[in-house]
Each structure stands twice: as structure tokens, then as C-alpha cells.
Design a protein around this nucleic acid. Structure first.
Lengths: 136, 136
DNA sequence: TAAAATATGCTATTGGCAATAGCAATAATT
DNA sequence: AATTATTGCTATTGCCAATAGCATATTTTA
């Protein structure tokens, strides 16, 4: 009864992603970050010239949804906004944001390593290229 | 700026799944079904003895979340409940449910075929096994 | 340079999937 | 017979994402 759906790549994608997100979310929650928040921090990294729109474009998060996301990071003291011109601002990590990013990096790195380790060797190197063909 | 995250399997998983779900959802919406509803229909198929709990167990949908889902399928006239004992009921497709399932099958089959076609040949056969190692 | 098109950051709302806590009734186990 | 587990349910919450609309500012082009 099970095996029927598991052969469908779309179904397998959903299930794998759900499992992955549940695990990673739980780990990131320990440092007070959501998945989407962590991905924003990872993307800003050392940069001092990235705008909200830039981040949203790369991560495919709409401007409207960036607002509360960055609002939370701001309220947590992890980022500050620096006016670039009268329309847009750069999103910059505070010292606390940089420290949090280091934690997030450590978590995601060990997470990704464990994830890859679960995949049988002969399939391992094919996963990311196959996935990236589906959206990039 | 982009490529950094795209190398992370967790990130690639999320992005691929989001793209996939957006596409498939749009197709299923044309026949009035959500993804989760379609997966329930696909699983019931011809069976006449599956309970709500059974479906939830296989699909990893909690009982609490099965209630509104089956409620919608019921309201749409696609399923009926047949009492098994005083505690549980079998979920059975109506004629309309069977017809809708046939449509859903056609949609998912061509969808899955197109999805696989997007993946470079050398990676193609590795996707589903790699994904299933992450949750099964 | 003036007018039109585009971009930015935002408010407010909605949708879809999933999780938690708790409950009454029933069925299965010991 | 008493305990434990299961079923179906209510009610609520969380996370990610989408849509529609808006004021302001910038860029393009005519």
C-alpha cells in the first residue's frame, strides 16, 4: 500500500523535504531561528550592500514576506538597516547577528553532512544536481 | 551569491519541492483538488476497507488533520463513510470520486513524467532512491 | 526634460500543510 | 474486570508562501 506512492518522484520529494525540514527546524529552533531566517543570515554573511529585495530575489521570497522576516531579525538585534538612498536600505549583520550566523553555519553544516551520509553511496553525488535541475 | 546555497542538499531539496508543489498544485486545482486530497484519493483507489487512521498512517497525516481533509472530500461527494464497527469507518470512493481519481491519475502521471524528463539522464535514476533514503 | 514604466518597502489578508493538546467513545490487551 | 490503546474529533497554533493594493522613489524612453 505504501510502495505505490513512494515510486512517484513528486511524492518522494515532498516526504523527504518534510522530514528534512522537521529535523533542521528543530535544530535551528535551539538557537532561536526559523529556517527562512537562517537562510537569510547565511546569504547576508559578510556583505554590507544587500537589500531586502536582493535577498528576496535570490531566495525567492516575495517582498511582502520579507517584511515580517526581517522585522523579526531586527527585533532580535541580529540585523540593522542602513539607508542606501531614499528608497532602499542595506541589511547588515550586527555583532550578535554575526555570532548567530556562526552558530547557524555550524548547525547546517553538520546537518547537511548527516543528511548526505544517509544516502547510499552510489546515489549520493546525484542528488543535488538532480534537484537543481528541477528549479534552477 | 546564488551558488553557495544551491550546493546545500537541504536547500536544494526545499527549492525543488517548492517548485514541484507549485506546479502540481496548479494542475490539480483545475480539477478541484489539493495535493493532500489527491494523495488520499490515489491511496484509496479501489479499496473498500481503509479507515481515516489507515490513510493518515501511510501518508503521515495526523488524525486531527485528516478530519477537515476528508470532510472536504465528503462535501464534494467524492467519498462516503461506511461504518465498520462503532468506532471506525471505511472511506470509500463514490462514482464521482472514482471519476475524479482517474483525472488525478492522468495529471500526476504526466506531471511525474515531465519532472523526470527535466533531470539529466545520468542523474535520473538516482533521484527517487536517494530521496527515499531520507525518510523511509 | 517631461512622461511613462519599473522598483522598493510596506499593509493586510488568505491559503495550504502540519503540529499540539485535549476529549469521549470504543476496542483490544493483560 | 481493569488497564491500555485506538479512533475520530474540536480547537488552536506555527510556518511558509501567495495575492492585491499603496505611496514613494528611481530609471527608462520618447
Amino acid at each position: 500500500m505504501h510502495d505505490l506512492l513512494a515510486q512517484l518522484p513528486g511524492y518522494a520529494l515532498r516526504r523527504a523535504t518534510n522530514a528534512m525540514m522537521a529535523d533542521l527546524s528543530a535544530r535551528l529552533q535551539k538557537i532561536g531561528l526559523r529556517l527562512s531566517e537562517a537562510s537569510v543570515l547565511l546569504l547576508i554573511d559578510g556583505r554590507t550592500d544587500v537589500t531586502s529585495s536582493d535577498l528576496g530575489r535570490v531566495l525567492d521570497i516575495q517582498r511582502a514576506n520579507m517584511v515580517p522576516l526581517l522585522g523579526r531579525l531586527d527585533a532580535a538585534g541580529l540585523i540593522v538597516r542602513k539607508q542606501l538612498d531614499r528608497k532602499s536600505s542595506a541589511i547588515i549583520l550586527t555583532d550578535e547577528g554575526t555570532a548567530r550566523l556562526a552558530l547557524a553555519k555550524a548547525i547546517t553544516e553538520s546537518f547537511e553532512a548527516e543528511l548526505m551520509a544517509r544516502i547510499p553511496e552510489q546515489h549520493r553525488d546525484h542528488l543535488v544536481p538532480a534537484l537543481n535541475a528541477l528549479w534552477m
